[in-house]
Amino acid sequence: MAVVGIARSLHSYHHFTLWRAFFEELGWQVVLSSRTDRQTVEQGVKLAPAELCLPVKVFLGQVARLLEQVDYVFVPRLVCRRLKGDFYFGCPKAIALPDLVRAIFPEQKGRILELVIDQQIQRDEVGFVRCAKALGVDRQCAQGAFQQAKKAEAEAGKLRVHGPSPADCFPPERLNSKPGAGRGKIGVIGHPYLIYDEHISLNLLRMIAELEIEPVIPGIGEEELIQEAGRALNWYYELELIAGARKLVREAQVDGLLLVSSFACGTAPVVNELIRREVAVRTGLPMLTLLFDEHSGETGLRTRLESFADLIRSRK
């Protein structure tokens, strides 16, 4: 029985349940890479071109580590999804991920397991069947496994108690955020692979909680996403962020918004600008943008958060 490795970064935070269930259904063992640490980041930074965003560098670092441990490394190519008849794309880096990995690890080409999700040209099932074919699994088996995996994913969604949060898709992920003592709420908007990765985001959520402020992370389900479709944005995973910001302002009565993104993230300037215009300016909510990169320091972050917390309290 061979082992398939999945990196604990990028869109694994969205789809890990589905991917794991699929491979396990096929009888493969799945290994999730260990949590991001300094070595992962260092290795990723060494491998990647300097201008790439930190999450992709972290992904590459984790792939490098997985390649030492497992037989195959799973690298998804998330091109396009369809919502209400319109197409919504992944960011260019998500689309190019397998090409990127193959260019960086040219000797390991054969061990990269590519999954293409592109609803412009094929159903998801076809993508999974093709992915399994590379492992020598026949079509019917793969189709069955895909159906089972879909079921598993739906079930995991039902089990979530505190609203659907992508982090719930992960095996026990400690958030370490004790709820604040009602001294304010901050909405945290950002890709799950940033805010839930304690190493990249320097324990942001815990730091907020330590300031006795409750961090609120909007959970956006598929239906809510469909509601938001047809708006200004054509990136699937970023639509989620905008939907989240709108939902927070509408329902959760937050006192401020924290936009978390990484330096050199291509979608962030556009998404943050749209959120700023649509939500923050219109409602007058205080907003803080945090950019993370491999040089981020905890002290600087703490200082900015503290002053943001002061601002929020002074407005109350």
Binding site: P49, E51, P92, K93, A96, L100, A103, G266
Partner: peptide, 16 residues
């Protein structure tokens, strides 16, 4: 351009 998404991510492929 600096931080152009496609041109940054294509660099390893170009190098290869």
């Amino acid at each position: 351009p600096f931080a152009c998404m496609p041109s940054t991510v294509v660099q390893p492929a170009l190098a290869a």
